[in-house]
Amino acid sequence: MDFQIALILAQDGITNGAIYALLALALVLVFAVTRVIFIPQGEFVAYGALTLAMIENGVFPATAWLLLGAGVIVTALDAGAVVRAGGRRVMMLAGTHLLYPALLIGLLWSMPLKDLPLIGQVLVTLLVVVPMGPMMYRIVYQPIAEAPVLVLLIVSVAAHLALVGLGLVFFGAEGYRTSPFSQARFEIGPMFITGQTIWVVLSSLVLIVALAMFFGRTIYGKALRATAINRNGARLMGISPALAGKLTFFLAALIGVLSGVLISPITTIYYDSGFLIGLKGFVGAIIGGLASYPIAAAGALMVGLLEAFSSFWASAYKEVIVFTLVIPVLLWRSLTTHHMEEEE
């Protein structure tokens, strides 16, 4: 192994690590605010990538039907309470959960999807898939928001399996690759960097900075932080836990879909690819103790690098090496931090 190979591997590791880092941040965020270990995070990656692929091929994205279905369920769940509250709220509920998917489906039918510029296609993908995040929170997690972490975890596994199954129905068993954002290639010394790599790394950085701004500067971001620090205290201050949950899931879905859109030109994505990508983000999140954003991001980056280098030296044991990393990290964490039992 010479310096040149090390450079190429590092570049590869950083590209994948940037995606893992985004997912790790989303996982930490979701866990901090709602105590949910969000296993379906990876599904949003796959759904995003594959919805974009369908749009690119000029096929009507089947995920839009899921959006409509989820909208109908949310409306049914909320109908009773909202009708009692009356007037404007009924309109709002019907508007956001029935009218929006219906309008979107109409729009998708009428638009020449294949001829949209790439940025338009990405936008449509976001419009279709991201609202599923908050809807998912409403349907799956909100009814059991006060349940113990273990119950939430088990429900997460169920949601993950359901989404993978639906993914097979929507997208079929074969994978897709989307066209890259940029065909550019830069030669720097002995190595070349593709435009897509730069896109991935820069977008991840922008997203991370945007998240930091959101949490530091905006009232909603501060509300989420407050909920993460003390759920009951935040509630007493008038922060609705349901709103915090939906907002969190909106962000998680947004991060997931963007990761999917970014990574799908680099690799082929299948209906079930999301889980493993999400799991590597999870290893990063674990390194950050499901609490620290910077450590989680750094951990995820390390996972990416470790993966790249172990695929060079011991390709058959790559996953083993990556996932075994969790054990020393957990050992170290449990030895150095004193355990605090969260009151539930």
């Binding site: 591997l9 695929s311 058959a316 790559k318």
Partner: peptide, 20 residues
């Protein structure tokens, strides 16, 4: 002789090893 997984997102390491 290299291995990779069906769900891998990158095989750069294996490919470099082979090409060497």
């Amino acid at each position: 002789s290299q291995r990779y997984n069906r769900t891998d997102t990158s095989v750069t390491g294996q490919v470099l090893q082979m090409m060497a």
